[in-house]
Design a protein around this nucleic acid. Structure first.
Length: 216
DNA sequence: ATCCCGAGGG
DNA sequence: CCCTCTGGAT
């Protein structure tokens, strides 16, 4: 089996995208939010946790701390109690308060529409920044690479990299910019519903014929 | 590389 | 019990 050419991989990637979009026409960000600030906070909380669990904690969190000014003045113990069930709760409470204070100090309480400015803020890495830019501002700055995107990209051999930054570099090279945000949603939905981490349901997978890891 | 750290599934 | 869930900081 010869090494797949760049052109062939781009075509395969495009077909995978089309089939997944057909399968998940309503794929979207499943975190509940009403502002860029709320999406950023919810995304920080979503580390190593299901979005369902995040959505259980954020109504109370945003009721008490609806914006950066309120959260910047919060007591850490109060925030810890609200976000406890998301795991890593001490770090997450510290991070979202630090994030709010950073917004107040450097951005007049508003979330910047800039990847570098975002990643300078406490608790915000490249993944979180890409989520905010793509889903709060409709800016296709990069591809969100989370645990699902990394796993599926490797299984489908859209990349051979393990480092998330390198995975993203391969993905932005394979897909046109206007597809970057939706690509992550499609891979995440497929990862949750079919291409499970432990027991992938290759029999139910609409792209199994394009996947080198398929066991069908 | 390691720490943070909760909940649900198999 | 072990693994996984939209990671980031040190």
């Amino acid at each position: 089996m010869p090494r797949e050419s760049k052109k062939a991989r781009r075509e395969r990637a495009g077909t995978i995208y089309d089939l997944l979009q057909e399968e998940y026409p309503d794929a979207h960000c499943e975190l509940d939010f009403e502002s860029p600030f709320q999406l950023a906070v919810a995304t920080i909380l979503s580390a190593q946790t299901t979005d369902v669990r995040v959505n259980e904690t954020t109504p109370e969190l945003f009721r008490r701390y609806p914006d950066a000014e309120a959260l910047a003045n919060a007591q850490q113990e109060d925030v810890e109690e609200i976000v406890r069930s998301t795991g890593f709760f001490r770090n997450k409470a510290k991070n979202i308060i630090g994030f709010a204070r950073g917004l107040m100090a450097d951005h007049e309480g508003e979330v910047p529409r800039d990847l570098h400015a975002l990643t300078e803020l406490p608790g915000v890495g490249r993944k979180t920044a890409n989520v905010v830019l793509g889903n709060a501002f409709d800016i296709n700055e990069g591809v969100v690479v989370d645990t699902h995107v990394k796993r599926l990209s490797n299984r489908m051999r859209l990349t051979k990299e393990d480092n998330p930054v390198r995975v993203e570099r391969d993905l932005v090279d394979l897909f046109p910019r206007e597809r970057w945000t939706m690509l992550a949603h499609l891979l995440i939905w497929h990862g949750r519903n079919v291409c499970d981490a432990r027991k992938p349901l290759c029999q139910k997978c609409v792209v199994s014929h394009l996947c080198p890891s398929s066991r069908v």
